[in-house]
């Protein structure tokens, strides 16, 4: 607009690239992560990745206690949130031979999940710090091969890299993978009322 409107009542800018559907490449689950990592913002912080407890303690001996606490938190979180597979072969296909362990959930079911490959720590010098498990794949069938990834598929870069900039959200609790016992418990009202054929369909108003 050549004449800037002082009290503009409409959205100043819309990202047309995001709204375009035909030419836009289909985003993979990884697409979002790369946006988060490249977006400039105040919300990002420096994080460090350690491959095990000893790695953390040897690099920060004066913070050995925090290292251990963070390690235990991450292990617990990994059990809860790591991708779970019914078959060992399926897990190894994604993460590589010998990279998976069996796991028995609280409800008594057996699963296979990848080993925690490391843990990511937010700035230890601040009074509140967060930890989060990270995984990697050695499978040549996986797009995550030799990359750090979170339980829900966010990618943090090459596994040789130990310092990463991440969104604060990287440390928020991840969804638990659950065994679904039943589907179709929502939506019956639509079937009951749809003989009236809201002409374009839809139950909004």
């Amino acid at each position: 607009m050549t004449n800037p409107i002082i009290h503009q009542k409409r959205s100043a800018q819309i990202n047309l690239g995001r709204m375009r559907k035909v030419f836009a490449p289909k985003p993979l689950s990884l697409g979002v992560a790369s946006i988060m990592l490249t977006a400039c913002g105040d919300n990002r912080e420096q994080a460090m990745i350690f491959t095990n407890l000893q790695d953390c303690v040897s690099q920060m001996p004066e913070q050995a206690e925090q290292c251990e606490l963070a390690y235990r938190n991450a292990l617990e979180e990994a059990q809860r949130t790591a991708p779970k597979y019914a078959e060992q072969s399926a897990c190894e296909y994604e993460f590589g031979a010998g990279q998976c362990t069996s796991y028995r959930s609280n409800d008594g079911n057996s699963w296979f999940m990848p080993f925690m490959a490391g843990y990511m720590l937010s700035n230890l010098s601040s009074s509140r710090y967060y930890s989060s498990p990270v995984f990697t794949s050695y499978s040549r069938y996986s797009p995550y091969r030799y990359r750090w990834i979170s339980a829900d598929g966010y990618e943090y870069g090459d596994i040789r890299k130990r310092r990463v900039k991440v969104s604060k959200k990287a440390f928020s609790p991840k969804p638990t993978v659950s065994k679904t016992i039943k589907r179709g418990g929502f939506g019956s009202s639509v079937r009951a009322k749809s003989s009236w054929g809201s002409s374009r369909g839809g139950w909004g108003g």
Binding site: R183, G184, G185, F186
Partner: peptide, 22 residues
Amino acid sequence: REAGIDAPFVFIENIGLSETGF
């Protein structure tokens, strides 16, 4: 997604109930 948040989709009819009640 413009806000930098992941946005998966599921149809209402396909929502499942887990053993743990989620």
